[in-house]
Design a protein around this nucleic acid. Sequence first.
RNA 1: GCGAUCGUAGCUCAGUUGGUUAGAGCGCCGGUUUGUGGUACCGGAGGUCGGGGGUUCGAGACCCCUCGAUCGCCCCA
Length: 424
Amino acid sequence: MSSKKPNKTPQAIRGTQDIFGPDAEAFAFVVETFERVRKLYRFRRAEMPVFEKTEVFSRAIGETTDVVSKEMYSFDDRGGESLTLRPEFTAGIARAYLTNGWQQHAPLKLATHGPLFRYERPQKGRYRQFHQLDAEIIGAGEPQADVELLAMADQLLKELGITGVTLHLNTLGDADSRDAWRGALVEYFRAVQGELSEDSQERLEKNPLRILDSKDRRDQKFVADAPKIDAFLSDEALAFFEAVTSGLDAAGVQWTRAESLVRGLDYYRHTAFEFVPDEGSEAAGLLGSQSTVLGGGRYDGLMESLAGPATPAVGWAAGIERLAMLCNGTGCEQLEVAIAAENSDREGEAAEMAAAFRYAGFSTEVFASGSPKKRYDKARKAEPAILISLDVRDGASANNLSALDQDYQREADAAEIFAARTGG
RNA sequence: GCGAUCGUAGCUCAGUUGGUUAGAGCGCCGGUUUGUGGUACCGGAGGUCGGGGGUUCGAGACCCCUCGAUCGCCCCA
């Protein structure tokens, strides 16, 4: 919107959001549930800076990835150093782990959440400033770590009340398995190169694994018969994957094998996973095409890219906005007590009574502004469990308490406070 | 970076093949009615129809440009 007016209200930055109302309640509900669940699994809370030296991300994530090559918010600070707003958590966590000597706590279970930044075109479920939950287990190379991490993710989704979402699981094998598989895929797709989509012809050079989850029909007919990772897995890699899957079964985590699931970033090895809405489910409809709600995997090579010791690790991240879309309507709690001061002489008492209710642990709202005659209706429209009217009739105080919600449990306690305050 | 759709009151939206002074509902403010009650009625504030240019006797509507939003591709949570 261009305008000659000098004092036009500035607009928010593209891809940023002002979250309010039910959306904000759902957002808070997601974060609160995550905090509760991570404590059950004894993941320790950590806070990292929102920005880092650019090289933290370019080295850890990979120069050639889209995230680094075209999606980072980078800028020079006043000393001329290139800094970047974090596009993901893992690289910063790895840096913190190394610079703070957190090796002493290994194996370390870490959880955090907060804003991330990526310069992309916004669309449904995707923003330039977005928010993620993040959980990592660092310094644990055993498949049990993958299982515990996934069990936590699964419980989180259940506690959020999210249904119609299942765990898609794959293995990328160890470095050798992955390289051999990649070579076979390149060979296979090169043979039919001319029939692939334009995007996939390019992927063949840059990131052949990505062809496997192409949405283009021209690609999909070849994907079905493409070489499978299973044929290239070393004995160790196979044993690792079997330990993960049997551990998930033992923990009661539902999963499905997704042979063409590959993760975008270079550092993933072995386990790769995503929680994705089932086709045709309500969740799928709510999310649009940005459907992955939680994703991650094992990244055994990451620490070395930051000049640290070889350190096995697994982690996942989940988009808070996407999770919140799936649990809208939850998190918004009912108003317990509404107090309508229907006469301006009662406004002071209404405030005092509200304080009494609030100290007793009742969520309370006072209606004492605007036309006195319309305050009762306003209070009523707030749909409280208990509605209290303070009025003046024939020169004397007139008080009334009515219970509007039949199922409300604390009515007797509320009535007691009301009676004590009104001398009745 | 590419593509599609869309910008009218604080919000949700009408607005006919271009035709007087741009409307409704909700919300907000005030009044009348009611007087232990989610009432009804009346009134008010609030819009250079995203911005600029063009076509026309006449543009909210048609054309071009621009800004913005939404959704999709790429990529990803």
